[in-house]
Amino acid sequence: MKKTVLAIILTLLCSVPAFAGGGELYLYIWSEYIPDEVVENFTKETGIKVNISNYDSNEAMYAKIKLAGEGYDLIVPSSDYVGLMRRQDMLLPLDKSKLTNFANLAKKFTDQPFDPDNTFSVPYMWGSTAIAVNTATEEGKAVTSFEDLWNPALKGHLLLPNDVREVFTIALKTLGYSLNDTDPAHLEQAFEKLKSLIPAVRVFDSDSPKQALLSGEVSVGVVWNGEAFVANQENPEIKYIYPAEGYSLWLDSLCIPKGAKNLDEAHAFLNYLLRPDVAAAISTEMGYSTPNAKASEFIPEDVRTNDIVYPSEAIAARGEFLDDIGEAMNTYEEYWVRLKGAE
């Protein structure tokens, strides 16, 4: 269904003038986070070649940009890393005069504290991180909350994201704390609790965690909703559970790193992605929510009404957006190294 719908949407894309002289740009983005057809259509319309490299965590992206300093024209950090990189003067301000489609974004996703007035960032997609379970397995049937992940029956059957903030969210929420907690005592409690979860973990994977669920390598995974959406489309027995304790919501944005060379091409691509039809095509294919308010008319009803992709207000109310935690991130990372060393 998705491929057919995507093809239909793409045939409806309105034409835009060819970009003078063609050109190219270098996009550094999460794995499996933009449809090939969307990129190919942009190149057909503008002549601009998009060179894509992938990463599997904000930490990996940040470290590479910090170290290299140049080589990429667009990156896709989550909101907490937009705030961090903005504070560290790692981003270039956007030229809003070249982003004529910016007004298509829903106001609740713009002018956020991590980037007031969207000086440096364009919202790309938002979503959640919760629990995907294979209900065909006894281990999967038993999981309804984060606390259930500590069930001894899950030993060796659990997948966790290779992401320090998302993994700490599991423990912080079961302890009754905010996922943006910076209290050293609370973080130590979360670390100790997570140490006891390690025996259950078969793999840390943020590249394509749905594969381990679909292959039966794991019965339960803490995954992003888009991964759960695709897995559920292929195997309806894989369900997505929003834990009662709460869970993380996130907003990923497109930014231009300070070492970017192809600025006109980067702005052309940003403006293209802000078109409602393009935003709808991305959401439909990837299974994540678009912040583009005008895209809904292009999104098929079975996607638009799917709680995995677009949670109801009641479900969304239990979520909490990841935010920049400042210097406390150093503590998280120190514990993360120790936690991964205990695998």
Rank of each mutant, 00 (worst) to 15 (best):
G71T: 10
V223C: 10
L160Q: 06
M286K: 09
A295P: 02
Y310G: 05
K173H: 11
S57V: 05
V201G: 03
I282A: 07
T11W: 01
I34G: 09
A68T: 09
P199L: 06
I282F: 07
P184R: 07
L67Y: 09
P116I: 07
T169S: 15
L175C: 06
L175F: 03
A136G: 14
V223Y: 08
E217A: 15
V133T: 04
D207N: 12
S196Y: 12
T284F: 03
Q233G: 07
E285P: 00
T305A: 12
P116N: 08
I241K: 02
T137D: 04
A260I: 01
S128N: 11
P123E: 04
Q189R: 13
N180L: 04
T174W: 02
A244S: 13
E320K: 13
F114W: 14
N292E: 04
Y272D: 09
S208P: 00
S206I: 02
S31L: 10
I282V: 15
S57L: 09
L105K: 02
A231R: 02
W336N: 07
P276T: 07
F229G: 00
G21V: 03
E138T: 13
S289G: 04
L254V: 01
E37W: 00
L249M: 07
V309G: 06
V82Q: 05
A7W: 06
E139K: 04
E40C: 06
P123Q: 05
V222S: 03
G246F: 02
A171R: 02
E40A: 15
Q112T: 12
E285W: 11
F120I: 04
G341M: 08
Q112L: 15
S208H: 09
L263G: 08
G287E: 01
W224G: 13
V39A: 13
G226L: 03
V164F: 04
A295K: 01
K239V: 01
K210G: 13
G69E: 05
A268S: 15
E297R: 13
T135W: 01
E217Y: 09
V218S: 02
W336G: 06
T46V: 10
E217C: 02
L197R: 05
L160P: 03
M1P: 10
A136S: 14
K258G: 01
L249A: 01
M61D: 05
N225P: 06
L91N: 03
N151H: 10
E37N: 11
Y124E: 01
G83D: 06
N41Y: 13
P243D: 06
I65D: 02
D252Y: 01
R304Q: 14
F114P: 00
H186R: 09
N162L: 15
V39D: 06
K261R: 15
L154M: 11
V230P: 00
L172E: 11
K340I: 09
E24Y: 12
P311D: 07
G221Q: 02
H186D: 05
L214I: 05
D163Y: 11
D207R: 12
K195T: 11
A68W: 10
L339T: 04
L6D: 07
M85F: 04
P113H: 11
A293V: 04
S53G: 10
E265Q: 15
